[in-house]
Design a protein around this nucleic acid. Structure first.
Lengths: 343, 343
DNA sequence: CAACACATTTAAAGCGCTTTGGAGGCAAAA
DNA sequence: TTTTGCCTCCAAAGCGCTTTAAATGTGTTG
């Protein structure tokens, strides 16, 4: 069923039917109702491609996901982010198109998305500190919004980020207040902007109490279970092992816990752990009482909001860039306790 | 840059330019080269929307992801599947469009995808045993392929599946060979087709050795870490606790391991564990030596192959449905060993 | 040299929609 | 009665591409 057939059926012109369906005022309420009803009966939906061609709006938003080295796609937080964004999109009538590309093809992918004009905007994932993609998109002139920020980019752009610095500063303070003095940072890869900011927060808290950050206690790597496990095994054999771990991801935190338990230590008594918790739907941090004390910020909510932000950006093209900074909340679980006295 | 401008630039008609770019034979090699070059210089890409409208092919494939109850999207395997599918899509020049919808809107979503004509085909995720979506899509007449199967649907359709039955039968046999007689099945939700098939395999292996499957040792649920943990805690306090666990997901297996270690038992000595391993890129089963003995089958490869299968289905519409059954491989790790003698 | 086949190229229609610029009808105002 | 304005509705152009049918040139043959 297309518009032509539908309007023939109704004995009206295509113009009128189109207007009736799109809520234009030049149609009497009576005919509008009639049109609506018949359209509904025949389950009519305008052909997206034709509509997009006519309006110049694709009603779709692109996500370019680098496949290979960065492992972004496989990043377990991605699913939840997409789920959140998808909610906003379907609410606003947008489709989501994913383009999975090898790292080296990324630049081409963005240009192509623009030239092919099958999206109205793009979400940028996992920004690095100086991310060339941002300036590229600015030059191209395709609306975009970044999940995170790129510290070294000074020109304004739209973004949504968690306040990583304050979250990790607060978590570190919490541990310091509990008497911990040897706090190990189990961070993500430092080329990532969020990891940099977390380290800043961690270092700032220490320095505020005149503690020099110890490089031997600061780790950066891909946030896997094994990474968390290995880091604990390695650090617990130091001369003065850390009494607390500040972890960047709940997956790594699982590894941290495993190593702690394997060493015969009790988490929350012998060793304290705080993790950042993206509130992933399939990796819940305990049921009623959270297992881990954590800085929590739902990545799903982030997806939802960033999508909205981008949509309003698209629909109001002249407006200046929009930004949103989410504060993580510190949730106390059973993984933290006062620093044990050294024997 | 659009076709009109490009052909004006070249001093050729749109027809010729279009043909040159699309590899039609009615164009001299000389002009083709010239066209190609100028198009390249100006970074020309045909407008997808216009092309789709003219050809009737959207060059896009849809994935409808139910959001709420089923938690399919958040399912951690989803990311890897999508990554695999994405590889095949971009290779073949297709886009991937995701539609995240609430469970109750699913039927509407499929009809809409068809009516809006913005995809050429659909991938169906997480089929249940009698899945109404399959018959619905057959009626609609939109090409589709299923990741998994629906036991109760008898009409032919395209699918790709892991041989869940044989995988779990083989794993159970392996445990039986090691002398285990009380094997606990930690399965996924039994409305899911794959879970049903796995139980079938498990039961068949037991029955082949005249062991009656014990309902007290068969669990079904959402495959979270906590679910695995709880199941072990619960079963280890039985009168005759199981000496082995057969687990449906590596995430649940992490919980199984945690509970085992917490009980002071040693995995592979006191209790054996086999898990199904989807070979997720961010949850590797150990480095050199796998931690878990597992039935392994890469869900990413599955995505890649299913996408190809669907594409050939789309491009050869009259052909009969295609199917592919992947065999999981049994990888022996350190989580299994001979059944301990009862004290 | 005319006639033909063949290789290139083109004009124009059409894909299904939106939207501009009118047209027709009718009631109120002149 | 004519004019004006408003309310409905419509014909047709146009979005950027493909594709059919036809036109143009070029070389070959009788």
């Amino acid at each position: 069923m297309n518009l032509k057939e539908l309007s023939a059926l109704l004995g009206l012109s295509q113009t009128t039917v189109s207007r009736a369906l799109n809520g234009y005022p030049e149609v009497s309420e009576a005919t509008r109702r009639r049109v609506m009803q018949v359209a509904d009966e025949h389950n009519y939906r305008p052909n997206t491609r034709a509509k997009a061609l006519a309006t110049g709006r694709a009603m779709a938003i692109g996500h370019v996901i680098p496949l290979s080295t960065q492992h972004e796609m496989m990043n377990p937080i991605f699913g939840d982010f997409i789920a959140g964004a998808g909610e906003s999109y379907s609410q606003a009538g947008y489709d989501m198109v994913l383009s999975l590309v090898a790292d080296e093809d990324q630049s081409r992918a963005y240009h192509e998305m623009f030239a092919k004009r099958n999206v109205d905007g793009i979400v940028l994932h996992a920004p690095k500190m100086q991310d060339s993609r941002i300036t590229m998109l600015q030059e191209i002139g395709l609306p975009f919004a970044v999940h995170g920020r790129a510290t070294d980019i000074t020109t304004p752009y739209s973004w949504l980020d968690v306040n990583n610095t304050s979250a990790f500063r607060r978590a570190t303070d919490f541990l310091l207040d509990l008497g911990h003095r040897h706090i190990c940072l189990v961070n993500g890869q430092e080329s990532m902007d969020f990891a940099f900011r977390r380290r800043e927060g961690y270092a700032a808290a220490l320095q505020a109490r005149d503690i020099a950050p110890d490089p031997a206690l600061m780790f950066a790597g891909e946030m896997t279970e094994v990474y968390g496990y290995d880091t604990v095994r390695r650090t617990q054999s130091l001369e003065t092992p850390p009494t607390a771990y500040l972890v960047s991801s709940i997956i790594a935190a699982f590894g941290v816990r495993r190593a702690i338990e394997e060493l015969g230590l009790v988490m929350g008594r012998d060793v304290s752990v705080i993790t950042h918790d993206d509130d992933l739907s399939y990796l819940r941090n305990g049921a009623e009482v959270p297992v881990f004390t954590s800085t929590r910020s739902s990545v799903r909510v982030a997806g939802r909001r960033l999508a909205k932000l981008l949509i309003s950006q698209i629909e109001e093209p002249c407006a200046s860039p929009l930004t949103e900074l989410l504060e993580a909340e510190l949730t106390v679980g059973r993984s933290t306790g006062p620093a044990p006295h050294r024997t």
